[in-house]
Design a protein around this nucleic acid. Structure first.
Length: 152
DNA sequence: GCCAACGTTGGC
DNA sequence: GCCAACGTTGGC
């Protein structure tokens, strides 16, 4: 089982929104970055663990846990002209963009704050703190273990 | 709201 | 296939 960090702006979609979704399941769509797409399409597997990160908000940090319940399938939004994620260059025979479904597992009482991640010697090398713009990123096994210890 | 970092686009 | 211009992300 691998560990991933998914970033979201809580104004758009938060851990609370995920928790309120039917069965706690949502489609993680709208990913339009090739590096993130490749993780989704090629690496993310069912039952992988997802740490949800809230960005662009007052309380920045990791807000909860989810699990991958459906592996990569073509993101339907790419073919929906009404969608903000519509991509006229994507053809049905060779989809450009993929998504997965994730299910809510836990909402933390308080987020593991960005500040806390930076100050923690075990976490200060997380990709999140280096490659700011990547919205889907791997979390190493030791990092995931350490994160788990913080919420236990 | 500013702006640094960095991904994407498109002319050549 | 280089690279300047442009757009977006996201912390501050």
């Amino acid at each position: 089982m691998a560990h991933w960090l998914f970033k979201t702006e809580p104004e758009e979609f938060s851990i609370a929104d995920l928790e309120r979704s039917p069965n706690g399941v949502t489609r993680w769509d709208g990913i339009r970055n090739y590096q993130a797409r490749n993780f989704i399409r090629d690496k993310i597997r069912i039952n992988d663990q997802v740490w949800l990160y809230h960005s662009k908000t007052k309380h920045k940090g990791i807000s909860g846990l989810a699990r991958v319940v459906k592996e990569a399938y073509p993101d339907p939004a790419q073919w929906n002209r009404q969608s903000a994620y519509f991509d006229p260059k994507s053809e049905v025979i060779s989809p450009k963009w993929y998504c997965v479904d994730i299910q809510h597992e836990q909402t933390f009482d308080s987020v593991i704050s960005l500040e806390q991640l930076k100050q923690d010697p075990e976490l200060c090398d997380m990709l999140l703190l280096k490659q700011g713009r990547l919205s889907i990123q791997p979390i190493s096994e030791p990092e995931a273990k350490h994160l788990s210890s913080l919420i236990a």
